[in-house]
Design a binder for these strands. Structure first.
Lengths: 249, 249
DNA sequence: CGCCAGATTGAGGACGCTCAATTCTGGTGG
DNA sequence: CCACCAGAATTGAGCGTCCTCAATCTGGCG
């Protein structure tokens, strides 16, 4: 199975776990055309103001959405891991108001909007599944708002790591050890902090025995402690119809 | 024309301005069933964890979406003004992970999900318009992230007021004078600040000749100055296909 | 071996928070 | 008509979290 099929399969699995799809829907998703593009670290994938004609399915690495103030301060507003369709929203709203960049070396499958629109137009169930995917994305943004607006620095970072843990766990990683292909500057831009302060908070989390960042991976030392610090409840991630029960992740 | 028809017409106008709808779509929206409910200030409209079976179209007043930390700190994540379908997302994702509350006395039209789903299933164009409405909501949340994460207190408040100005202007209010049916505590919860600090920043904005809050209205004293302070660009609001040009509002 | 990006640590400063008190406003009942 | 009250707005003083500036250390790579 090639890279593109694998990425589509991952995405389909996600859609399938949250929605009721028909066999035809599944076939339509698997048959989606696209071509694979590699991006080095910190490359623009979509620029502000552009009109998108294709969507970006992440196949490897990490992709980030971000905004910027006039002063050049940067705020990451979403992370996309393999199996995420990073800008599915552009299918219905092609004018880009939040740019997309690779946070690490990333492999992306570029899928033409036309193909997605055609698939959606032919099936109310698939159409609803795509819509739902966008809604989950929005709910994650809402949770980030709570995180940045009302939690202190240590909790913000802990919360972000909990989220990544849960999201990586459904694509096959260990919940206690998963990739964090981000610099501390990225973490800072995602949490509304400075890299220096992120560094200090990471040290504290390590010294408390909560998490540790080693190289490009996170090692959770104590999930209970970490999620308590983070005040984390993964319900907003809507990880599957079953996982849609309260609590946990 | 009764209240419900008026609210549906407002919402339809919004959908229409951003999407290409057929006459049948328009008729379907206008024919949506529902019943009108009044809420006093600070009443729960949707509670956390609930499963929604209907959506809430705001007809009057102001409705807010919010999250809460374990410590009880509150973060507003969206405001909905008349003509907004406050929880359209619940049509495809009924489990509520962010509660909904009236911020002022509010009039809401309760529309059964089934009716919306039926209308959407029958028309790819309408389905896409609804999906798009959710996407715009998400982009507003993204912009709030940038606002809270990377702007100082004064700019955050100015930005929020600019957004409200633009959004109220498309439902018939003057861009220089529009309702702000919010307490300073609400503004604080929306911007991740304390009410005390909001108060000080409002005073500063007034003294600078930017905006003034009088009673339950905002009076813009100098739009240029205000939007400069706010670092505001209304493109993210996607106010109509035409207004989808850069800059302005 | 030198270079560079990223991580780490230190010291001082500022923005926004906490605690506390006072004033203002609109609504209510006597 | 006025006294009263609760919620909201306003102001002051002191403090703490997080920022800024600056220097050093580390690891990967040409």
């Amino acid at each position: 199975m090639d890279l593109q099929s694998r990425a589509l399969a991952l995405w389909l699995k996600r859609l399938d776990s949250r929605s009721v799809l028909t066999d035809a829907d599944r076939a339509a998703v698997r048959a989606l055309p696209g071509n694979v593009v590699e991006f080095a670290t910190s490359r623009d994938i979509l620029r502000l103001g552009e009109i998108a004609h294709q969507a970006c399915l992440v196949a490897g690495g990490l992709v980030a959405r971000f905004g910027q103030t006039a002063g050049g301060l940067r705020q990451l507003t979403a992370f996309y891991i393999p199996g995420d369709m990073a800008d599915l929203h552009s299918v219905v709203l092609p004018r880009i108001t939040a740019a997309l960049q690779s946070a690490s070396n990333a492999t992306v499958v570029i899928v033409p909007h036309e193909a997605i629109r055609a698939a959606a137009a032919g099936s109310p169930t698939l159409s609803r599944a795509l819509w739902r995917d966008c809604v989950v994305d929005a709910q994650i943004a809402s949770e980030w708002l709570l995180n940045i607006g009302r939690r202190d620095a240590r909790a913000r970072i802990a919360h972000l790591l909990c989220e990544l843990s849960c999201r990586y766990s459904i694509i096959g990683y260990d919940r206690m050890r998963f990739p964090v292909e981000l610099t501390q500057t990225h973490l800072a831009d995602a949490t509304g902090l400075t890299p220096i302060h992120v560094n200090r908070m990471l040290r504290q989390l390590r010294e408390e025995g909560a998490v540790e960042l080693i190289g490009r991976e996170a090692q959770v030392l104590d999930w209970e402690r970490l999620s308590a610090i983070a005040d984390f409840d993964g319900a907003y991630l809507h990880l599957g119809r079953d996982a849609d029960r309260a609590g946990g992740c």
